[in-house]
Each structure stands twice: as C-alpha cells, then as structure tokens.
Write a protein that binds this DNA or RNA. Structure first.
Lengths: 354, 354
DNA sequence: TTGTAAGCGTTATCAA
DNA sequence: TTGATAACGCTTACAA
C-alpha cells in the first residue's frame, strides 16, 4: 500500500517536495525495499536492479534520509564532540585530526562547544537527544558526575587528554603528560640546571596537574624541588605575566618549565622584551604540546610533542570497539621530547622554514 | 494502543532498553501526547501535568529522541559545516565563533572536513542525507557547480569568506577583502613606500584573489603597480620561502603585502634570520587576518582585522532568515586596519602582553 | 532475488 | 486541556 501523505507536510510552500524511496521505487517499478537495498552496501540485490535504482535516484535527486535510517536501524553513527575553546593551536590540531579520523571511520561528528558560562551539565542531556553512539570530551575539564551519568545512559564516553578517572565507565585516552614532563626535567637536569621553576600551576586541568606532578617527581628523584612556582591559567598572556612576576623575585631560577607552549612563548617574549633575556643563552626554558609556533626562529622552544594522530586514531578505535563503556579503560601514549634551542647545550639545526 | 515492540531491537544485549515517551506516559498515567507536550516549549498543557511528566522523565532517564522529532516535524535544526583544515589560527577562530553562535540560535553543527583528497563533490550528497536546514561552507574553495546542486535540492547554502557567485542561489557573507587590501595599500603609500611587492598570489582562493585585486587597484589609483609578485600558497612556510626568493632578486621592494598573516610571519622570520632585515626598520610589511601571533613582540605585524564575531552572527542570521536560498545574496563586512609596527611611521604602544 | 508488512519514537491533527 | 491516530522515511524479518 502506498503512503497517502504528500511528503510535504509542514514544509514551507516554496520548497520542493522531498523525494523519498517510494518515489524512486515507483519510477523504477520496484518495491521500496529494493531501493533501500540498492543503497545498502553488501545487500542482496541484482546488479541490474541496483543500477536502475541508482539511475532513477540520480535523476530524481533522491538521497536516503539518514534520520529515518538512524531511527529504524538504531545506529546513529553520530559522535558528539564536546570541546572547549580553540584558542590554543594544539586544540585545533586535535580537532582537525579527530574529525578526519571520525570521517574515514564513517562517523559524523556533531559539535558541542563548552564555553566558560555553558556548563557541561547543561549540554550533556541535550547531546543525548541526538542518540550519539559515543561522546568525545576534550579541551575542557569534564565533571566526573556528568561523565558518569552519560555513561550510565548507555552512551560510550571517550575522554581525550583529561587523565583517567578509574571510577567512571569511560575510555580515557591521553598523552603521558607525567612522562613527558619527566623527560623535560631530565633534560634540564642533564643540562646542568639546578634552580628550576614551574609556570602554569593551579587547580586547572588534570593534564596540567599531571605535567606538574611528573616534573616535580623527576626533580625529587634527583633530590631537588622547584625553586619557584607560578600559579596561573595556561596561555600566552599568562606566560607573559609570569615572566614579569618571576623576574621581580630575588631567587631567580636558571630554567623554567612552562606547562604548555603558549605559556612558554609568552614567557620568552616578556623576558626578551622587558629584560633582554634570551632563552638558552640566559636561561633555560621548555614547554609542552609542540605547537607550530614553537619552531619559529624567535622561539626555537624545546617541547614535548603529543602524538596527535595516534591519539585521534585511538579515540575512534575506542568508539568502534564493542563491549566498551562497561568499565574504565586507560590508555597513555608517550610524548617525545623535541630538543630545539631553548636549553643549554641544545643545538637543533635550523630547518629552512620553521 | 500501546506499541508491542520492546524498543530494543537490534541493540547490543548489554545496553539497557531505550526509555521512550510511552514509558514516561505509562509511569505518569497520561497519554504519549501529553509527554510530548511537556517537552514542547509553549505547548498547551496543564502546569501540573508538565511537572509530573518532567519528574517521571528525570526519574526514568528519559530524553526525547531528536531523530524522531526531526523526522516527523521536518525540521532538523542541523547545520552542516563544511570546512577546510584548521592549520590557520584564523580558521579556528572562525569555527569557534560559528559553533558558539549556532548553538545559541538552537542549531546543531555537524562537521564535514574537506581535505585535499576528499573533494567537496563527494561529501555534499552525504551531507544531504542528514537533512540539514543549511550548509555553511568555509575555509576551502567550493565548486560553484556543487554549490548550485546543493542549493537546488532545497538546502540553504551559506558561503563564508569565499566571495560572491551571483549565479548561485546562496548567501555569500564575507569580509571586504578588496577594501581591506586597499586599506593596506593606502597606508603603505601614505608611509612613502613606492616599490611594493605582493606575496601569496595565485589561482588559490577567491579571498586571496580579492585581496590581491584590491591592493593592485589601489596602487593603480596612485599610478603604481607591484614591482614584484610572488605566487605561492598561503602559509608560514610559503612566506619563508617567498622572502628568500625576493631577496635573490635585484629589484628589491621596500614594502611587501603578504596576503595573510601566517605568510607574513614566515616572511619576517626568514628576512630576519637569513638577511638580518627588520620589519619597519628595513622594510615595510603588512598582512591580513590579524591572528593573535601577529601582535607578539617579534612581529608586531600591521594587519587587517576581520570582524569574525559579526561574520559569524550574519551567517546564522542568514540561516534563520526565511525565503532565503531563493536567490544570490551578498554581504560584505568591512575589515579594519590595525597599525602595529611593521610600516614606517607606525608606533603602536606595546601592550603589556601580546 | 524480490516484495510485504511491521515497526523506530516522535509530533500534528482532530475530536472529545 | 487531553487522548487517539496517522504520519515521517526508512530498514528488516519473513514469505514468496
């Protein structure tokens, strides 16, 4: 029996009627199921049928309605990407890889921005409405409680670069921030620096804390501890301000570990502009993230590269893996230290262009 | 009659059954319609009913299924965002504003990355499957033909910062690149530069071409033309290479207009590193986009700010406006010249931090 | 290999 | 103000 509706209910009158599978079926003279099968990879259908259906579809401008498909098949292929602001180039790089990776895996990312004033609590329920197969959280600090509720509702939750909460049934995938920071500490110590400072400390993000912890732990291993610690949110402006604050102090450090590159860049600029201090020559400095700008000549900042591509790949793998979301999973991918010219003794060849 | 299905068809057995409106209705002792109304703002429903429905929904963990809602109501609130890579900080800034703005307007952005190897042609049909109310194209050069087909299928198309194709029924919203570039030319001329070069020319993007055209036109108005033109894709590396190429030439320019900031930054670094040339002191330079890095002390690059927030706002306004998508619409928002310290005579006060 | 028919979870319509 | 009922456009047993 052919549906009676005109397929145009509630639609602005100037829009053309939606072309449905039924239309194509009629045009070709087959059943609606045949049309469906023609668009289902690997379905049992005669080649000739598929071809004529495709031809008619192209002619009529038919495209399967993904919404209806999701509804009936109970598979949305939708992945909610909940993320903080993109001001930090590292964040954009992650989003870039992530969307690319999701796409090749056949997922559709839908974006939910987390701004300072829109709490995650508020957006999670609205995300659930879209029946995502998974939700990726990154670039902001998720509230454990919200995570748990999300996971409880049967949605797979993957947390990228936000530590590991063993109590929540989610996949936590992260760069090994502690290890990376330990690498930095090791290099600083090896280079003979002894009066070390840390910039960017604070209650902030888990990642940040891990870096600080890793750095301090490595120092402790050598019987040391930071001579100075500047509490501040991460970012260029913060680094700038931190430099000023540090220089005012009497107990000057001989090397500083900025908890991310943007902060380090701000630090370098302030130290140079206001005090004529050059990295490497006058003090050691290192960052974390290895953003493109760190390689630029005015900075040549040594840093820790996060394996962005691998992280992104692991995230979509985690989404695809079944049986997941049942218990907490943690995956730590190592970062690698990139020596440039911001620590004593380093002498990275200048590449032609940044 | 209550539906007979268990609401769990085809679902992995370990996932809990989906909670539907019917469940809530039963729990409260009202009809499914009542539940629907309880979640429809402005619907005709008794306050007491709404409250008990909400209470039951919260208890059972019910969230309306947006997919089903879209299907029946013929309004998806989905906006396809088709965009190129985010390597350029300007792009991320745009995406940031755009998603935020879409969100407050009640739209849901779904992201379609355009990579060099995935042509737009291929992704547009797959976008249509999701029944978007509109598609925003930005950060890549859309094929006019693909645009037209999209618009033809009844989807509103908004093109951000990609010129204006009067033949396509789409909304073109863009910064006034010609005007902005003319501003740059004017400043350079006023500063007494006469031997001007342009870097970043090429068949590339419409935006880029507009900038070049605007610059050249302004020069022509003064009876001049560029003494040199470097054809190159935009980007840091390109700017770097361009500097080297320009310096090799005998007819050296006294000022160069890089078609975007990233390119200018690369140029500055190369000129300084390889030739000891300082912007402003030894040559004039300006860019376009005003990315955050341009304000950093090593660069202090004069540039043209694009009104990102306004552009984003106009885009979602265009989406919401009805009757649109019927004919081509063009909107040009002016950019503004930001003098810093890269042209002779400029003396921007150094802000404390970047 | 194809067609029939039963849903998926919601909202729109109409009558009560 | 509420409830029954018919779509929305599709996939998928099951039967042919």
């Amino acid at each position: 029996v052919v549906k009676t509706g005109d397929g145009n209910a509630g639609r602005p009158r100037n829009e053309r009627r939606t072309v449905t599978a039924t239309d194509v079926a009629q045009a070709v003279g087959v059943s609606r199921s045949a049309v469906s099968r023609a668009f289902t990879p690997g379905a049992l259908i005669a080649d000739s049928t598929r071809q004529s259906v495709h031809a008619a579809a192209a002619r009529l401008g038919y495209v399967p309605n993904a919404l209806a498909r999701m509804l009936i098949s109970q598979r949305s292929r939708i992945v909610g990407v909940v993320m903080g602001t993109l001001i930090n180039p590292f964040r954009s790089a992650v989003l870039d890889r992530l969307t690319a990776e999701l796409h090749v895996a056949g997922y559709v990312p839908i974006l939910f921005p987390v701004t300072p004033d829109s709490s995650v609590e508020d957006i999670l329920p609205s995300i659930r409405q879209y029946q995502p197969e998974a939700v990726i959280m990154t670039g902001f600090t998720p509230v454990a409680d919200a995570l748990a509720r999300m996971a409880d509702s049967g949605v797979r939750v993957v947390v990228l670069n936000r530590g590991c909460e063993a109590t929540v049934a989610a996949d936590f995938i992260s760069c090994d921030h502690m290890g990376g920071a330990a690498l930095v500490a090791g290099r600083m110590l090896a280079a003979g620096y002894a009066r070390l400072a840390v910039v960017g400390t604070g209650r902030g993000q888990v990642t940040t804390r891990s870096r600080e912890d890793g750095f301090n732990a490595a120092l402790r291993g050598a019987g040391l501890q930071p001579v100075q610690t500047v509490e501040a949110p991460l970012g260029y402006e913060s680094g700038h301000a931190a430099a000023v604050r540090i220089m005012r102090d009497r107990r000057l450090p001989d090397a500083v570990f900025c908890l991310n590159d943007m902060t380090a860049l701000g630090f370098i600029d302030a130290a140079r502009t206001a005090y004529g201090l050059e990295p490497q020559r006058d003090y050691g400095i290192a960052g974390f993230d290895d953003i493109p700008m760190s390689a630029w000549p005015p900075y040549r900042l040594s840093s820790v590269t996060q394996p962005i591509a691998a992280l992104a790949r692991e995230v979509v793998t985690a989404i695809g893996r079944d049986g997941a979301g049942q218990s907490a999973t943690c995956l730590l991918l190592p970062g690698s230290y990139v020596p440039r010219n911001s620590l004593r003794g380093e002498d990275a060849a200048r590449r032609g262009a940044g």
